[in-house]
């Protein structure tokens, strides 16, 4: 499990790295008054990236990520404490592949981003 508490600096850096100008991520009056969100919206792909980190930090140098998939089930706004967690679903000793359930959850324990990853270990 890992906690994430994004702030305006992180949202700026992330959207600048992507060159993403979607106003729901940085224009508070626009996000709240025009689009009706309770605050600035945490970008979905940023949370998706955290899912990959959940797997990568567990794997270390012992394997590699071969696939990730996720759905943006709920939105999350700045100020919410988020956390990632993962659980191994299956292991195939023959192919050295591991199937992992990964989620981003909010403080209310609701799944914001459900995902699934496949990883392959280098050696048996």
């Amino acid at each position: 499990m890992r906690m994430f508490e994004p702030d305006t600096i992180q949202l700026f850096q992330y959207n600048a790295a992507l060159w993403n100008a979607h106003k729901i991520h940085f224009d508070y009056p626009y996000a709240t008054e025009e689009e009706g969100y309770p605050g600035l919206v945490v970008p979905g792909p940023l949370m998706g990236d955290w899912l990959t980190q959940c797997v990568l930090e567990w794997l270390g140098e012992d394997g590699s990520l071969t696939s990730i998939s996720y759905t943006n089930r709920k939105y999350s706004c700045l100020g919410e404490a988020l956390r990632s967690e993962g659980k191994v679903l299956s292991v195939d000793a023959k192919t050295r592949e591991v199937e992992i359930k990964v989620n981003i959850l909010n403080a209310a324990d609701e799944i914001v981003i459900p995902g699934q990853a496949l990883a392959r270990f280098n050696k048996e």
């Binding site: 689009e35 792909p45 990730i68």
Partner: peptide
């Protein structure tokens, strides 16, 4: 709202964008 107009997608009758999901194979 600051979203780039994806010329691959025609102009749609709904205009507010949200992220849906992603699947990537490496």
């Amino acid at each position: 709202d600051g979203v780039w107009i994806d010329t691959l997608v025609p102009k749609l009758p709904l205009e507010r964008a949200m992220a849906g999901g992603l699947k990537i194979d490496y």
